[in-house]
């Protein structure tokens, strides 16, 4: 069995007496494509927030490459090799597309490049890399514009590119395919396959089961803050607990496709 890049051990978190996460433990293997699914309110985004350091867990630990992240401030976790996107798009509204993407490089830019003007020092400041990655996603057109005027699908992609720009070893994506049409979802899948082939581990939350199914190999299922399944995605449909949890779920959670 291969080494795990992320290890959650008994993570619990409650807000004002409400238990949002309860003893969640699972491993994400190095180089794997791991999905985290579950109904709305199951605690998936809270778990993401705990991993990225926005919330400290009340109990339990998060290990990244065998290092305990407890006490590592959220700002420094991206430098450890862990970056993420957000469920509701959190791009900087007054920055251009290129600037948003270049912000993603912030954690790995040496100080000397911090004080170079962006428009002149293109190569050393990582601008070419940013433009290239944007191009490979088909978003070169919009790079001078501020992001607020762009369509949803494009902003969603920009967020993924921004997270990727940090050069992470673990990329956490919170519903990357939500709101994308079929063509866009296919582009995203191809792109993430490409990302994965470079050895970057993917951990993603999504409700689009065909998308998750065609991309991921491992899956963890959460319900009411608890982990109810953790294993290969191929055996998911045979699991009794998962079937129970999803009985009577809202229709847009299409487990029948799994």
């Amino acid at each position: 069995m291969s080494r795990s890049i992320l290890k959650l051990s008994n993570v619990s978190k409650s807000f004002g007496g409400v238990k949002v996460l309860e003893n969640v433990s699972f491993d994400v293997e190095q180089g794997s494509r791991h999905a985290l699914i579950g109904p709305n309110g199951a605690g998936k985004t809270t778990l993401f927030n705990v991993i990225s350091g926005i919330h400290e867990p009340d109990k339990g630990s998060v290990f990244f490459e065998e290092k305990d992240l407890n006490g590592v401030p959220s700002r420094k976790r991206i430098k450890e090799g862990l970056s993420r996107s957000f469920q509701n798009i959190r791009l900087m509204p007054h920055l251009s597309v290129l600037e948003n993407v270049m912000l993603g490089q912030h954690s790995r830019v040496p100080f000397i490049d911090m004080i170079k003007p962006l428009s002149l020092a293109s190569k050393s400041a990582g601008k070419d890399e940013a433009i290239e990655t944007l191009n490979s996603f088909g978003i070169d057109l919009h790079r001078g514009q501020t992001v607020s005027s762009l369509p949803y699908g494009i902003r969603k992609k920009i967020e993924v590119v921004r997270a990727l720009m940090a050069g992470p070893r673990l990329l956490m994506l919170d519903e990357p395919a939500a709101g994308l049409n079929t063509v866009e979802t296919n582009t995203l899948r191809d792109f993430l396959n490409e990302v994965s082939s470079r050895g970057i581990t993917l951990l993603l939350v999504d409700h689009d089961m065909p998308f998750v199914n065609s991309l991921c190999t491992q899956v963890s299922v959460m319900n009411f803050g608890q982990l109810i399944y953790d294993g290969p995605i191929s055996e998911l449909r045979n699991d009794k607990k998962v079937l129970e949890a999803y009985l009577g779920m809202d229709e847009d959670t299409e487990l029948s496709n799994a």
Binding site: S74, R75, K79, S83, M92, P93, L95, H106, M114
Partner: peptide, 28 residues
């Protein structure tokens, strides 16, 4: 000059969204 560098970029990022700038590694 300052606003055209990455420092300026980080400043504008903090202006727009402190929490995300922090997660991007900006020392807010």
């Amino acid at each position: 000059y300052m606003m055209s560098t990455r420092i300026g970029l980080a400043m504008r990022a903090v202006h727009d969204d402190e929490a995300v700038a922090d997660l991007m590694g900006v020392n807010k």
